[in-house]
Design a protein around this nucleic acid. Sequence first.
DNA 1: ACAAAAGTGTTAAACATACACCCATGT
DNA 2: ACATGGGTGTATGTTTAACACTTTTGT
Lengths: 215, 215
Amino acid sequence: MTEQEFLKNYDSSDFAKPSVAVDLILFTVQENQLQVLLTKRQSHPFAGMLSLPGVFVGIDETLDQAAQRALYQKTGLHDIYFEQLYTWGDLNRDPRMRIISVSYYALVPADQIQLSSQDAIFYPVDKIQDLAFDHAEMIRYGRERIRNKVNYTDIAFSLVPEEFTLPQLQKIYEILLGQDLYKANFRKKIAQQSIATDKMQSGTKHRPSRIYRKK
Amino acid sequence: MTEQEFLKNYDSSDFAKPSVAVDLILFTVQENQLQVLLTKRQSHPFAGMLSLPGVFVGIDETLDQAAQRALYQKTGLHDIYFEQLYTWGDLNRDPRMRIISVSYYALVPADQIQLSSQDAIFYPVDKIQDLAFDHAEMIRYGRERIRNKVNYTDIAFSLVPEEFTLPQLQKIYEILLGQDLYKANFRKKIAQQSIATDKMQSGTKHRPSRIYRKK
DNA sequence: ACAAAAGTGTTAAACATACACCCATGT
DNA sequence: ACATGGGTGTATGTTTAACACTTTTGT
């Protein structure tokens, strides 16, 4: 049977279909650590373990919409940076049945977050041990994508409030990259993507920092 | 209903499921152009138009396996460079039904290709106009991914035979990047990733080029 | 000898890295 | 006055871009 004949004769009810889910990897920086949103599983399989929030993709719902829905359910947030990461299709990802999962990652400044679900918590990425399904692997992959993208995009700005100081922003860069940066050089590079306001930070017990916005 | 309850009560037969397909974007360089493998559609929808080769994902088949199968059907090839690109989930991608498609791209040296299907042809990427489904968009996205990856990986080597000359390799880089490169600088950078053999090219009407292998 | 493309050494500019220092605030 | 972190100018090293030139083959 050629592919054409296959497509021609294909009747969607004739074949067992995998289910399709979207899993969301929501990153934020809190307490000087990169953290990820996890939920505690109440039921089989992996009951009691932590897992990423996920939803099944509705028949009348795009993948992006499903990701937005998962985000909204857990955080009440709508308009934040998010992006498709990778699609996971191993056969026994889920012991119940064949599920193909499209993973998304999202970045949110810590101050925007108000968890709307009891069972949702933030967990430091570096301390993750065992998660349900292949979710630890997903997070590792997302972590790596971010580490790369920081260097040639402005995604780091997504983790900082609209108004921020350069030391704040530098800390974000350092956490995402996993290494310290030289203050003077960081500023020369990043200042170009930022606009200085006339406001200054207050309440510090040292010289106040100037407040910037993203250009 | 919480997500937990949803998952607990979820019965795969209760919900209409999208179908899942894999579409393959096979790139090669022929006649100094980046070309992509297309097939002419014989039947509805988009009968007569060109499209990417694709397969439905079997219930006992991983996504990578499905991509390999599509590759093998069209070219008889097995072990070549390929990688997942992106998953497309818009609602009306296919007029027949809801299909989510996981796209893969692959890179093959032109000399390895022996098309095993009558209706498969190579088509220059820069001359593509209308394709069936969202396949033109997929190719554009894959083209962009390659353009980026050329700069920080060695994927360009995947488009050249095991033994190659540096001018050959440079031409590949130039085609992938879409711009000319300076010979001397290209060599300083790439020579490090290559090993010189003691063989020389023959049959040219000018100075013969040394043959290299990938390190 | 000449054409044509292979192959190399050197210079100049751009960018990244590192250091040294000054500044503004609270105590 | 001092501790603390904010903020800046300059020098050094490394990478990238560009040019000028030599080499080897066929005709």
